[in-house]
């Protein structure tokens, strides 16, 4: 009771003393916001506006930018042989890799949520690949998938496949190889932990109610577990797609866009334009196009989500 009284007193004092002190709130709010605000204006807004301007110029860093209007934007749609193909490859990579990764993490979490004995051991086992730095993981996977001496092809040959794929060295298999590596690194990571948290948040009464109705385990999975996980699926899909479309390091270190442009993703195209050909203006235009695509795709997913994401009790 004493605690309650003092709490009321504090509230009263706060109202009297602090609430009118709007200036105090503003002063300290902005004081503590300053480091971020400096970074936001200096490293984000400033460069963002600059790159919007540069996208309207021809600029090679050494000589001053020359204003050319919308020529860069016209060029990307009409006169850049790698523009549309690089978008297609990026969509292929993210469109296959992200849903597989998200669903993989979800099913792994569902399996692990099965009141499994030795859960921490299994969870650690699946989490381990996340700890491997991307560059190290690329080097490792290039060795696993080595055409002649890699363990995968040796195994495939011993199983009687005379001519196994050349993986990273093969135009058709280079993107699937990157996807496989991404799945290995991503399925058991943070995303799976988020799904485990989502699963543990599903009220047990719902399962009890389903049991009373005579639902099988399978029916409970489809009618209770998955609908209640849709917010988590949605969250992971959004983050996954934003990340997947920007994929750079793995493809750059593994194949540098090759073989024969097979992994020349949009982000690589942009990088090459900027830092190999010094077409900074054109690269800035590509970057802005990319930003518009990613933002609109995210907004579109948010709108679409009202049709399939189910918020329990909300």
């Amino acid at each position: 009771m004493a605690a309650l009284t003092s709490r009321f007193d504090v509230a009263a004092v706060m109202r009297r003393e602090l609430a009118p002190r709007k200036r105090w709130q503003n002063f300290y709010g902005y004081l503590f916001l300053t480091p971020w605000l400096v970074g936001f204006l200096g490293l984000f807004i400033g460069p963002g506006i600059t790159s919007l301007y540069l996208s309207l110029t021809k600029y090679d860093v050494l000589s001053p930018p020359i204003f050319i209007g919308f020529d860069n934007y016209v060029k990307m749609f009409t006169d850049d042989p790698q523009f549309w193909p690089s978008i297609g490859r990026t969509i292929y990579y993210a469109g296959v890799g992200v849903p597989l990764g998200v669903l993989g993490s979800m099913f792994l979490a569902i399996l692990l949520n099965n009141k499994i004995r030795a859960l921490p051991a299994y969870r650690t086992l699946f989490f381990m690949p996340t700890l491997v730095p991307i560059v190290a993981s690329v080097v490792l996977w290039k060795w696993l998938l080595n055409d002649d001496f890699g363990v995968v092809n040796q195994a495939l040959r011993s199983l009687g496949m005379a001519d196994p794929p050349g993986w990273f060295g093969d135009r058709r298999w280079a993107i699937p190889s990157l996807i496989a590596m991404g799945l290995w690194q991503g399925i058991g990571g943070t995303r799976m932990i988020i799904f485990l948290a989502g699963l543990q948040g599903i009220p047990e009464e719902l399962y009890d109610a389903a049991s009373i109705d005579g639902a099988s385990s399978w029916a409970k999975l489809w009618n209770v577990t998955i609908p209640l996980l849709t917010p988590t699926i949605f969250f992971n899909m959004i983050l996954g797609i934003i990340g997947g479309l920007q994929t750079f390091t793995a493809a750059f270190v593994a194949t540098e866009g090759g073989p024969g442009f097979a992994t020349w993703f949009f982000s690589l195209h942009l990088y090459k334009q900027a830092f190999d050909y010094w077409n900074m203006g054109y690269a800035a235009a590509l970057a802005w196009f990319f930003a518009v695509i990613i933002v609109s795709l995210t907004m579109w997913q948010m709108r679409l989500s009202t049709r399939w994401v189910f918020y329990y009790g909300g």
Binding site: G46, P47, G48, S51, S267, Y271, A287, I294, V295
Partner: peptide, 14 residues
Amino acid sequence: MMIPTQVTLIPQYI
């Protein structure tokens, strides 16, 4: 978080 890093990359680099 949504904006790709490439948007700010080039002016930052310069």
